[in-house]
Simulated scan of single mutants.
Amino acid sequence: MANLPTFWKEHFSSNPLSEISSFQKRIDRMMNELMELRGGSSDSLMDFSPSSEITEEEKNYLLKVDLPGVKKEDVKVEVSGDTMTIKAERKTEKEEKGKKRFLSEISYGSYVRSFTLPQAIDEKKVDAKFENGVLQVSIPKIENAMSKQISIH
């Protein structure tokens, strides 16, 4: 049997969070397919799950969330301590009389996700903008919480 570090490298990427996200998307797809097989309406029970990304810079974090088809007024950003919560809703279009959906792979519903950041943030200076279906949140770190290199004498 291969040793554990070799097994891990062969079967998983270097970023475990991307593996979790990929796994979550596969589970969502399977649940949607299961609902369709059972004759239920998957869009009424399943929430949509947008992709997100957090990058760290020297003085802040940058959170990006893809929210195509969501209106700016249907997005909420809340900060509490080291936790940021994003809430969004993609509403279904009203079906017009005489018009039937032939195929729908678009997920509708509400989205709520909380991100715990690795250190405290400056809540008063958080800046959010929503452009072309992408939410970008700049999250400044607290000055005294940022790492500082110490010179050795």
Rank of each mutant, 00 (worst) to 15 (best):
Thr55Glu: 08
Thr55Cys: 01
Glu56Tyr: 04
Glu57Thr: 09
Glu58Arg: 13
Lys59Val: 07
Lys59Asn: 12
Lys59Ala: 12
Asn60Phe: 14
Asn60Leu: 12
Tyr61Phe: 15
Lys64Gln: 11
Val65Asp: 08
Asp66Phe: 04
Leu67Phe: 01
Lys72Ser: 02
Lys72Ile: 00
Glu73His: 00
Asp74Met: 00
Lys76Asp: 03
Glu78Ser: 02
Val79Ser: 12
Val79Met: 12
Val79Asp: 03
Ser80Cys: 03
Ser80Asn: 11
Gly81Tyr: 04
Gly81Ser: 09
Asp82Tyr: 01
Thr85Lys: 15
Glu89Ser: 14
Arg90Leu: 06
Arg90Ala: 11
Lys91Thr: 10
Thr92Ile: 12
Glu95Lys: 13
Glu96Ala: 15
Glu96Asn: 11
Glu96Cys: 08
Lys97Trp: 08
Lys97Gly: 03
Gly98Glu: 05
Gly98Thr: 05
Gly98Tyr: 02
Lys99Ala: 10
Lys100Met: 04
Glu105His: 14
Tyr108Asp: 06
Gly109Cys: 07
Gly109Tyr: 07
Ser110Asn: 12
Arg113His: 11
Ser114Glu: 06
Thr116Val: 15
Thr116Gly: 10
Ala120Cys: 02
Ile121Val: 15
Glu123Pro: 10
Glu123Asp: 13
Lys125Trp: 04
Val126Arg: 10
Val126Ala: 09
Asp127Val: 14
Asp127Asn: 12
Ala128Arg: 09
Ala128His: 05
Lys129Glu: 13
Phe130Asp: 05
Phe130Leu: 07
Asn132Leu: 09
Asn132Cys: 02
Val134Lys: 13
Leu135Pro: 03
Ile139Asn: 07
Lys141Pro: 07
Glu143Gly: 01
Glu143Thr: 05
Asn144Gln: 07
Ala145Ile: 02
Ala145Val: 04
Met146Pro: 01
Ser147Cys: 01
Gln149Ala: 11
